[in-house]
Every structure is written in structure tokens, then in C-alpha cells.
Design a binder for these strands. Structure first.
Lengths: 350, 350
DNA sequence: TGGGTTGTGCAAAACGTTTTGCATCCCTAG
DNA sequence: CTAGGGATGCAAAACGTTTTGCACAACCCA
């Protein structure tokens, strides 16, 4: 009494939940070995056309789809990468994510969205995905200081690309970033030329090299007095910081430079709520140039960052590395920024 | 001559690329079996504390992290789901995505971003991820008509939840959606009360049940004459459709109802460029209430949708299903919408 | 003394692929 | 008649886990 070599079931077939067809099931039904099925489907080796046709018909009949998990395990890679960003509802990161997703899709990769809210625990968990090799690589676009340290420890061992961020003292880094320093400089020059001498600078969380670059460029080009307050890139924090200064009567500045457009919006709102006119009494400048910046009233003067390109470039670089196994030389793409002068800036009041 | 039972390398160790440590390497170094290592790490069975300590120390020394792929293969699930949306740079979907990501994170799931641009090929590829079981489930938030048909074929076999979408004739569906029909009705009533009798309705791509619901609700409540044009939910299409009608001199309407805010923005721009005043000459209404809607000039009258909650609810429902293996009864959450009356609507001109 | 229980750890199967080496058959050229 | 070789397809190993059944020792209670 012979037993079928493949596809035998251990329990009988009346089980309620049907296990999806495996390559063994196909092989058994077509009367061939799993090897042959694999070859038919992958084209890796020639198979007799008649046999192949039979296999294909069984594949269709059974609705067989190869389990990508098993395939990935065998191949040693998953064709998925992660994108770590703080806030997908920030239009800047949404645009960046779109660029990343496009680049990933072009090379047949999936993209896992790692939205962290600057939460260290959350960042850690997502960074763990690369250590457990569930993702082939990671595009890192800004996180909190602690995760930054973990990141730097990882960068030597795993494929990681930085989008719109920098890192100190690492030679072999893949970086695509807008020219933040130039952006800061442009704003500094603009405000100086308008006669401003004291500005309030709203920064993002500490520990972000991109933020440092913006501030450096700005301070250097501006030359006047700079009051600094630390926010978190959200609209609410811009509002809160400005409102607080206003209450305390300590806003003796003629301009506000926010680290991103969202905080600029918040600042703008706080100022108008306090009865101040923008740009009549005080000027406001943002950073990013998200869509709403040109639609708000008054239209916001801001630095345009090519968010889509930053995301796309960083991802493309990463994938060139992981997909072809190439180790690129330390590579940095610095994308140009431009100053969009709109209605929220004017010559200094006095 | 004895051979070590575990961890022997086939080629010598001077190979340039170091393979990450596996559970066998740990076992060999600690002088135990892989089984024991697994038990130490998972806590699935008690292990002698002394042995356990030794294993843990080796784990640290080798920097061992379990390969999630192998784990998933064995477990039969990946703890990852997909989110299929047309455009992440649309603030509505970004907000929805954020809700989905939050819900996924809460239950320890990862989220793959499937941004389709309504591109059928792209949708198909992403839908394939569920058939190959790379994702445990899918949250589907609107796609093109062809992918919709594929989706419906899939819904019986795989865990899929609909976010802000509907489906006909399917009992066992997981749905979380805003009340589109009520939204359309609110707009219809609002415009009727303002005395409008002819409105231009800019719809999204055909085949979206949510769009049909909006239109139905609107037409029924409005009662006047409705001119319909089909757009694609992008700002440019709103602009193009209105501009074209304007050129042809065929815009004999006193109001425009756009299927989403982005198209309303486009319409607004086209109207002002043509020298028309909003809402003086013509009123404009949107749908979604994305952040920019209240910031634009004039502030847009629109229907507020709880995008975050829609994403979060749909995802939570799906995960309750896939994570606990529970099969919920057909379940539909309809989330309330509200009309935000702002500055872009006024009584009909004549 | 003998049967049962508890503690401890290992072997082997299973998850579902791809890949490599080999066996068989048949044909052709020398 | 035989050596060589293409065509075809299979067996088995490998990827890295978790889980189940079992073995062995030590202990306890009757």
C-alpha cells in the first residue's frame, strides 16, 4: 500500500478552517514535486511545457499564492523597509512619506509607517524591527534624542538612511537633506534687510541636527538679538509659547521665526488673538512651505523644502544599497531650499 | 572525535560578511539546546535559573535578536497589516492614517502604507500582500473601481475592514465610516435655506460608494437643479473643472459643492482668478474639514469628518478580529458628521 | 518498595519556500 | 557499441524559529 509522497493531511478534511494551499498541495495535485512547481512559477529552470501547463492549471484551480514569509525567510530579506517619522499628520512629513513610498514602490518594496510622536518607547519598538530583520532597512526622518543615540549605534550594522537629518562623526552615512543652514541664512538675511533687530526663535525639540543647522545659519546671517524658545513642531506649541510671552509682557521682538510652518501658524493665531497685526506690528516666518502656508491669511513667508524629493532621494539611496547589495560610498545629497516671501513679513515696526 | 551538536559552521569563520547570530549559535555558546534558549526568552516553560542566567548572558554578548521572519512563519501570522489609501499627502487620509497607526501600535501591530494614487496596478500589487499572507489584514480606505471588485472577491476569504467606504450586498463586513449621506444632506439643506437653486457638484472618481452616499443625501435634501462633474479629489481637478466651465460660459450656478476640501480649494482659486467673489457671487462648500479649510481665505464652509476616529475605529475592529481570532458579527460603525458654516457660503446672489 | 509527581532539558517535527546536486532517460556522434 | 550530453524532474538541505512529546533524575507519599 503506497502513500502519496506529498500533501497528506494529518487530520481529516472536514476541519472547519481551511488552511491555504501550499506548494506541496499543488505538487501533489499536479503529480510533480514541489521543486518543479517552484521552477514553473519562478522560471528559474526550464520545465517541460506540458508539465508546466498542468502545474499552472492546478495553481489556478487551487488559488495558490506563494507564502511570502517562507520566501523571505529563504531569501534572507523581506523587501520591506521602515519609515520613521514623528507625525504623519504634519503635511511636511506626509509629503516626505509620499516620496518615500513612491521610491519604495518603484523597486518593489513595501513601506512600514513608523509614526512616533517623538515617543521614545515607540521609537525603540520600531527601531527593533530592523534588529529582528523584519525590515531590510530604515529611513529615519527625525526622532527624539534617546532614539537618536540608539540609531547611531545601529547605523554601523544595519542599512539606514537619514532623511532631512544629519549625524555627527559618522563617515559611512546615507543622507538626503534639504539645506537647512542655507534656509536659516535666507531667513536671517531677509529679516535683517527688513530692519529687524530682535527676533523670537521657536525651535523644535533639542537634539535634532537639522534644527541646529537652521538656527546656526539664521543667527549667523541675522546678527541681531535672538530670543529662543523650545517647542515641539506642533501648532499648539507655537501658540502656547507666544501666548505665554505675550501674557508676561516679554515679547519685545519685531519678528518671530518658527522652526516649521505649523508652529508659525500657532504663533500667528496667538498674535492676532492678542490684537496684534501681522505683519504690521510683528512679522512671522516659518519653515517647510507646506501647502497651507500660502493659503493662510496672511500668506506665510517661509522656506520652501522639497519634502517629496527628500523622502524619495533618501529612500532611493537606501534601496540601491539593500537591493543590489551595493555599499555606496558615504553619500550625501543636499537639496536646495528657497525663501518664499509672502505677506507675513514687513519692515520692522520701529 | 566528537562534533559539537549545534552551531557548527560549514565554511571557516574568516568570511567577510558576518551572518547575524541565530538561536543555534546562542545554544552552542551556552551549552544548551535551542529549545532551552527559546524557553528562556519566551518564558513559555520554566528553566533552571542558573541555566537561564547563562543563556541570557550569552544572548547579550552575541547581541542575539530572534528573527521575526522565522517566528512569523512558525506562528502563522506577521503582526503587520496594510492600510490602502489613495493619497497620503491629502490631509484627510494623513489624519486617518494616524488613527490607524495608533490603533495598530496599541496592539503591537505594524502598518504598511499602501499609497495608490488610484492606480489600479499599484492597488493590485498591494492587495496581493494579503493573498501572500505578508499582512494579517487590510484596512481599505477607498480605491478605484477595478480594485474594488478584486477587494470584494477577497473580503470573504481574508480579514479586511473598510474605512470611510461601503460595500454592497456583503453581510459580513467590518465597516467604520462617517455618515456621508447625512453630510450631503446637511450641505443640501444649508444651500437650499440660503436660496440657491442651481449648484455645481464636483464628485470624486465613480465607483466610490461613499461618494454616492454624499451625492444622494445632497440631491434629496437640496431639491434644486444639480450639474455634475467628475474629478479626482485633487486640488488641480477642482480648478480645472471650474475653469473649463467658466471659459465655456457654462457656469450658471450660484454655488459649488465639492466632494472634498482639496477640490473646493481648487474651485475657489479658479473662481477668484476669474474675478468672481466668494461668497458674494458664488458660494463654495467642501467636505472633510481638513485643517487648511479654516485657514484659507475665505474660510471654507465644509462637512467635518472625524478622520482620525474613522481610521482608528476601522483598524481596531480589524485587529480585534485578527488578533484574537474572533469573528465579529457584521459590524458597522457610523460616525457622526457636522456642518461647519464658515465664510465661503452666503445667500444666493439672485 | 513501588508508584506518582516535579524539575529539567533535549530531539524532532513543523511552518513553506528556494536551491543545489544528482539520477534517469533518450538521443546523437564517433 | 559506447561515450557524451541535453532534457527533465526529484530528493534533500537550508532559512530560523516554536512547540510537543519524551527521557531522566530526584523526591515524596503511601
Amino acid at each position: 500500500m503506497t502513500r502519496e509522497p506529498y500533501g497528506q493531511r494529518r487530520d481529516d478534511d472536514r476541519s472547519a478552517v481551511r488552511r491555504p494551499a501550499s506548494i506541496k498541495d499543488v505538487a501533489a495535485a499536479a503529480g510533480v514535486s514541489p521543486t518543479t512547481v517552484s521552477h514553473v512559477l519562478s522560471g528559474n529552470r526550464p520545465v517541460n511545457e506540458q508539465t508546466a501547463a498542468r502545474v499552472r492549471s492546478v495553481v489556478n484551480r487551487l488559488g495558490y499564492v506563494p507564502a511570502s514569509l517562507a520566501r523571505s525567510l529563504q531569501a534572507g530579506s523581506t523587501s520591506v523597509i521602515g519609515l520613521l517619522i514623528p507625525d504623519i499628520s504634519n503635511a511636511f512629513f506626509a509629503e516626505l512619506a509620499k516620496g518615500a513610498e513612491d521610491a519604495a514602490h518603484d523597486l518593489g518594496y513595501g513601506l512600514i509607517l513608523c509614526n512616533t510622536e517623538f515617543d521614545a518607547e515607540r521609537e525603540d519598538r520600531y527601531l527593533g524591527m530592523i534588529r529582528s530583520r523584519f525590515v531590510d532597512g530604515m529611513v529615519y526622518a527625525s526622532g527624539s534624542a534617546p532614539s537618536r543615540r540608539r540609531l547611531e549605534a545601529l547605523m554601523g550594522k544595519f542599512p539606514i538612511a537619514l532623511a532631512d537629518e544629519e549625524v555627527d562623526g559618522l563617515e559611512r552615512a546615507l543622507i538626503a537633506t534639504a539645506d537647512h543652514e542655507a534656509g536659516g541664512r535666507l531667513v536671517g538675511e531677509h529679516l535683517r534687510e527688513l530692519g529687524h533687530r530682535r527676533v523670537l526663535m521657536l525651535t523644535g525639540p533639542r537634539g535634532l541636527r537639522s534644527g541646529v543647522a537652521r538656527a546656526t545659519g539664521f543667527v549667523r546671517a541675522f546678527g541681531g538679538h535672538v530670543v529662543e524658545r523650545v517647542g515641539d513642531f506642533k501648532e499648539a506649541s507655537g501658540h502656547r509659547l507666544v501666548a505665554k510671552l505675550l501674557e508676561e509682557g516679554g515679547l519685545d521682538c519685531t519678528a518671530v521665526f518658527a522652526a516649521n510652518d505649523l508652529m508659525a501658524f500657532g504663533a500667528l493665531a496667538a498674535l492676532t488673538e492678542a490684537g496684534l497685526s501681522v505683519p504690521g506690528d510683528i512679522s512671522v516666518v516659518g519653515f517647510d512651505d507646506i501647502r497651507a502656508a500660502s493659503q493662510i491669511n496672511p500668506p506665510l513667508t517661509t522656506v520652501h523644502q522639497p519634502a517629496y524629493d527628500v523622502g524619495r532621494t533618501a529612500t532611493a539611496q537606501l534601496l540601491q544599497y539593500v537591493s543590489r547589495g551595493e555599499v555606496p560610498p558615504a553619500s550625501r545629497h543636499t537639496l536646495p531650499v528657497t525663501l518664499k516671501v509672502r505677506g507675513s513679513t514687513a519692515p520692522a515696526a520701529r
